[in-house]
Amino acid sequence: MKTLLSSKPVLWFLFLFLFNAAVAAVAPFVVDGTQGVMTAVGMGVVAAGAGVSLVRDRGVAE
């Protein structure tokens, strides 16, 4: 597990997942109306994609 978490691709995608998830959670409160909701949905999709790629590519070594 330690080698998995210390690899560069995992750290990069983990950062992307956490950043996009945070933006998705905050966007509706910062941006009003439809634009805030659509920003949250879009960033949530990106965060989900980064999370899925972490799980899917877990066995692939660099």
Rank of each mutant, 00 (worst) to 15 (best):
F29N: 14
G49F: 15
D57E: 11
L4T: 07
P9H: 01
A50V: 00
L5I: 05
F15S: 08
V37C: 03
A22P: 00
V26Q: 06
W12G: 03
L4E: 07
L5A: 15
L54G: 04
V60H: 06
V30Y: 07
V55L: 15
V46N: 00
Q35S: 11
A48H: 01
M43C: 14
A22T: 13
W12V: 09
F19G: 04
G49P: 07
P9Y: 11
V55A: 13
V23M: 15
A24P: 04
F13L: 15
L4P: 02
G59Y: 09
T34C: 04
L11M: 15
V46K: 05
A22D: 08
S7C: 09
L14Y: 11
V23Y: 03
Q35D: 08
L11I: 10
A40W: 05
K8Q: 05
M1C: 07
V46Q: 01
A25K: 06
V41Q: 03
S7Q: 13
L18W: 12
Q35M: 13
A61R: 11
L18R: 00
K8V: 04
A61I: 14
M1S: 13
G33T: 07
A47M: 10
V41D: 03
A47Y: 10
A47E: 01
D32R: 04
A47W: 02
R56Y: 14
L11V: 10
V52A: 05
A27W: 06
S6E: 15
A50Y: 09
G44R: 03
A40H: 06
A27V: 10
A47P: 07
V45S: 04
R56L: 15
D57Y: 09
T34P: 04
T3C: 00
G36Y: 03
P9V: 05
T39L: 15
V45E: 03
N20A: 10
V41R: 10
A47D: 02
A21K: 00
D32G: 11
T3M: 09
T39C: 10
V45R: 02
